[in-house]
Structures are given as C-alpha cells and as structure tokens.
Design a protein around this nucleic acid. Structure first.
Ligand SMILES: [Mn+2]
Ligand SMILES: [Mn+2]
Ligand SMILES: [Mn+2]
Ligand SMILES: [Mn+2]
Lengths: 224, 224
DNA sequence: CATAAATGTTAGACTAGCCAAACAAACATG
DNA sequence: CATGTTTGTTTGGCTAGTCTAACATTTATG
C-alpha cells in the first residue's frame, strides 16, 4: 500500500511518531501527540488504535507507541516529503526559512511521488532542509549528525548550529531576527539551570543573548 | 470567508460549475457534474443543496444551478490556482503539458494564497495555461478569446489552436503524440457529420488525420 | 502501599463525503 | 396531453475525523 492511500491524519501521526524518536529515542506519548497536533487525547488514542489495526504501529492500550517496519517506511516517506518541500519553497520560491513549515505541512499530503522526484532532481538531491534537518534519501536511509541540544552544552564550548526544530513557527521567526540559523557559530558562555537560561555569544555579530529552555532545547549544535 | 475555508469537494464543485459556463453558457446539470467528478448524482445533489445553503449557488430542487457572486469569486480563485499550478509544473518542474492536470487537481486545494502569488511572480504573471486556457487575474477578471470548437469549423479554414480541454488526460496524451497543442496551426479539410469525423491537416508536419467528435469538441480554434 | 493525580480509553454525538435504493419531478413523444 | 423515460432528490447507511464526558489504568507520593 502506497503512503498516498493513508488518510492525511494517519500520515501526520506516523510522521510525528518517527520525528519524536529521530533525536531522542523516547517513544512519544498520546498526550504529547495530542498537544503537538492540536487535537484532544481521545482523538489521538482512537487514531492510534486504527493505525495498530492496520499494522502500522505497535500499541496495546495504556502502553507505548512504536512504529512497525511498514509504519516506519511510510513515516520516513512523509518526513522526506516535508523536508524536500521546505527546501524547495526556500530555494525555488524565495520563501524565508521561518515561513515554510506550515505550507509544507499541508502540501506534503497533496504531492505525488513524481512531483517529489522532480523537486529532488531540480534541487540536486539536497541532504539538509532549511532548518538543518537531514532529508532522508529515497531509499529511507536516515543520517543522524552527532549533535545535542544547546541546553546541554558545556559552557565555554564553541559550537555550530546543526538544526533548529521547526515545531514552532513563532520561535523560528524569533531566531531568524536574532541571526540564529543552521550553520551559525556560537560560543556557550554559561548555563543557569535554575533560571533555565543559556547564555551565548553569536560569533557572526558578537551579540550576547540569553535563551530560555524552550529555545535552548530547540537548537541542536555540534562542536565547532 | 476565504476559499480555503471551503471543503475540497465544495471547491471542486464551484470550479466545475464555473468552468462549464466558461465557453458555452449552458448551465451544467447535476448529472453532468456527477459524471465529470466520478461520483453518483445523489452525492452531487446533496452537495449542491449544501452550497445553496451557504449562499454559494442558486438552486431550487429540479431547477438549474447558478453561481452567486460569492460562489463565482471562489470558483474563479480555484480556476486561477489550477491553471497557475499547471503552468508552474510545466515551466519550472519540467512536466509535459499532458501530465499536469491530475497533479494540479489535488494541489489546488493545498496551496496557500501566498504560494500562488509567489508562483505568479516567478512565472511573470502568465495569462494562458499549458492547455491554452486563460488564467484569470488575481482580481478575477477573465478574458475569453473569440474561439470555437474545431468540430464547428467550416471546411477549408486555416486555424490556430487556442485551447484544448484538459478534462481527459488520455486524450491529451493522444493529442501530444499527434503534435496537436495550443498554437498549432491546422487546416480543416472536411466535416463528416454522420460519421462524426473532422478531417484536418497539421501544417507543422503536413499530416492529415481524422478526429472523432469528442476530440473535435475538445479542441478550440481561432481563424489564423 | 494506599490513594490521589495524571494519563489514556471508551462511548456517544456531530459533520462531511460517499453510495444504493426508493421516490418525485420534469421532459419527450406517440 | 397522457404516459413512460430521464433526471434529480431523499432516505438510510457506511467511513473517517473530531469533540466532550465518563470511565479505566498507570504513576507518583504521602
Ligand atoms: Mn501534515
Ligand atoms: Mn524542517
Ligand atoms: Mn480539485
Ligand atoms: Mn489546464
């Protein structure tokens, strides 16, 4: 069964389950899915039950949610669509990197495999999206850079931004204003755990700023 | 209410009603809509009743279907989306003109106004789609070339193809093979009404061919 | 470790799209 | 112009997604 036979919401569910384990490895909860998708937990609970019946996820009531191999395949297809579309919107249509997420969230369900292939060809088989996230290859192989959240980086370290979570468009706009984007170089000046603040210097412009924990968790870095 | 608040099928209904009157002026029937959309008449009948309740069409049971001003506005928006997307797929993504209809049929419901504007700008505000159909301007003004179906053209006339109906992708592929596309020049050699055949010569390659009535109704021409 | 809080599930209701079957109206024609 | 055919409508039933409210299970904590 091709991914296009799944309903739009099934496609979003699978993509979200996969995305949750892309960087952490903690399986996602019903509640977190509901929060992220903007629906109630009962809706998600029911939706997951249906995916389990279709053999796309492993799930017993009140237990964890895991993708089956088939489910993972479809999830990766959707992630690939999403990230290629974001890249296309920035490269070809002059979108800013902080504007593309919502547009891609809808388009990903409407494009054909042919269109995705044409975009991939036109862009020269890109490997990272505008947020720095890896674009899975057509065969589904992911590549995970050795990165960690800015919030967990030792003070005094020089780092480069690898990726910025595209979950929150408002946050992306804020980062764009500050000059924070993939490949920006930073120095972590300090971590204040009780205040939940990370103090950084942006090497490009010398600005020193404090980021709250939501922001410092959304930005992933590697040692420069 | 923006057009994006309408359901996908409501968008298709309005677009189809408008398209039916673009060239003829005969209002479309429930049966013709059902046929064209691949659903049963009962489905369309019910759908039209709902559009009437929303003030988008004028329709009393068993009577004709007419767009209200609001309905027409939304319809033209959808036609514009469809034709700009088709043009974009051909110009930017190397689709052939006989491949784009089905892709646009789905994408038209997923794109934002912003995306349509960006495409329009990138393409330099095109006025005709790959099938020769006029692209309504953003303000909704249509422009209708003085064209008529090939089937109704006097034998002996030299003509240029203005548009080719994109309703049937198989037929488009057939035309593409023959070398028939918008702006192709033809001579009508004869009309055989009882056999429902139109005999033409394609000036580009000198080929003489017979077209059945479905084909000769789908091709619209102007005197050269 | 008993109980309260948090988390997840189920039941029932609503909307939307679709179909088949039964029905109603309009139209065509003898 | 009466009747039969064609066309359109209504009804009832199905799926899918969503919600709220009631309920069940798990987890945290005193
Ligand atoms: Mn989505
Ligand atoms: Mn992204
Ligand atoms: Mn459509
Ligand atoms: Mn077209």
């Amino acid at each position: 069964m091709p991914v296009s036979d799944l309903t739009t919401s099934a496609q979003d569910y699978l993509k979200l389950i996969w995305s949750a384990t892309e960087w952490s490895s903690e399986p996602i909860t019903i509640g977190a899915m509901a929060e992220r998708l903007g629906v109630t937990p009962s809706t998600v609970s029911d939706g997951i039950r249906k995916l389990a019946k279709q053999g796309l996820v492993e799930h017993a009531p009140y237990r964890s949610i895991e993708l089956t191999p088939t489910g993972r395949e479809h999830a990766v297809t959707m992630v690939r669509r999403h990230r290629l579309l974001e890249t296309f919107l920035v490269e070809t249509l002059n979108y800013r990197w902080d504007e593309v997420h919502d547009e891609a969230e809808v388009l990903e369900h409407a494009v054909s495999d042919t269109l995705i292939d044409k975009i991939d060809t036109l862009l020269g088989h890109p490997t990272r999206d505008p947020h720095g996230d890896p674009i899975p290859a057509a065969d589904g192989t992911p590549h995970r850079p050795a990165a960690g959240p800015l919030a967990a980086t030792e003070p005094g370290t020089n780092v480069t931004i690898t990726r910025i979570s595209d979950a929150n468009p408002d946050m992306l706009r804020y980062f764009a204003e500050l000059g924070l984007k993939p490949d920006t170089r930073l120095t972590v000046l300090g971590q204040r755990p009780y205040a939940d603040l990370t103090n950084i210097r942006i090497e490009e412009n010398g600005h020193e700023i404090d980021l709250g924990s939501a922001a410092a968790e959304a930005i992933w870095v590697v040692a420069a």
